[in-house]
């Protein structure tokens, strides 16, 4: 029985070492993310980026997203809900992070549609139909064009504007800034320049709530 006790002690000890080092590692990573965001604060909200909500709001959520990302799709209604919860106090900046293969075309469609003020409509359509064109973590823009056409968007103009130098450079800027800020997963959120310590909707909610409380 002494032996069984020894086994139990060993399990507890290595389990505890695992848990503690995981906690320390995550803490360290969170600090690193925070530092990265502070050092590159100017890369968060450039003038060209898509902005939604009161431009003078004192709380800004920055979301790096990929239209082919399932979690971005799941978060979309939640972020809208957050915006509705604090009208005028919170605004949202959307940044492209086309991490999936094929997503570069999808964000080009979005940025081109933005020229017709259709960014949000096209994004909603992308998320709604995501399962049909984003297959096995790969975006298939050719499958999405059909939906665009079907819903009466000006497909030809979008196609033309995708080559527009401003469209190309805006997307490139987002990609560069995302790399600079360590946004290597989507969605990546920053609230008033602060990254989420750990990922999750509740964490986002809490961070927004605390920033609203601090600024109003």
């Amino acid at each position: 029985m002494k032996q069984n006790k020894l086994i139990l002690i060993a399990i507890v000890v290595i389990g505890a070492i695992f848990a503690i080092s995981a906690m320390l590692y995550n803490q360290q990573q969170a600090e690193k993310k925070q530092q990265l965001a502070e050092q590159n604060a100017r890369a968060l909200t450039p003038a060209h980026a898509v902005r939604e909500g009161n431009p003078n709001a004192k709380v800004t959520i920055v979301e790096f997203f990929d239209p082919a990302c399932e979690t971005c799709k799941e978060f979309h209604p939640l972020v809208k809900q957050l915006m509705a919860q604090y009208p005028d106090k919170v605004n949202l900046v959307m940044r492209y992070a086309p991490l999936h293969p094929g997503s570069d075309q999808m964000v080009a469609i979005l940025e081109a549609a933005r020229k017709q003020d259709q960014f949000w409509h096209v994004l909603e359509l992308m998320f709604e139909t995501q399962q049909y064109w984003a297959i096995d973590h790969q975006a298939h823009p050719q499958l999405f064009w059909g939906y665009l056409k079907g819903y009466g968007f000006d497909v030809e103009r979008i196609n033309q504007d995708m080559q527009d130098p401003s469209v190309v450079s805006n997307i490139q800027q987002d990609i560069t800034d995302g790399e600079l800020l360590g946004a290597n997963m989507t969605p990546t959120f920053f609230v008033n320049g602060k990254p989420l310590a750990t990922f999750g909707y509740e964490q986002l909610q809490q961070l927004v709530a605390s920033e609203v409380a601090a600024n109003y």
């Binding site: 020894l6 060993a10 290595i14 695992f18 080092s21 590692y25």
Partner: peptide, 21 residues
């Protein structure tokens, strides 16, 4: 016991690399 301890530590270490790091 020693062999098991090594296997358990190796398992957790490998999970640490993939799940935490």
């Amino acid at each position: 016991f020693t062999a098991w301890l090594i296997a358990a530590v190796a398992t957790l270490a490998s999970l640490f690399f993939s799940e935490v790091m």
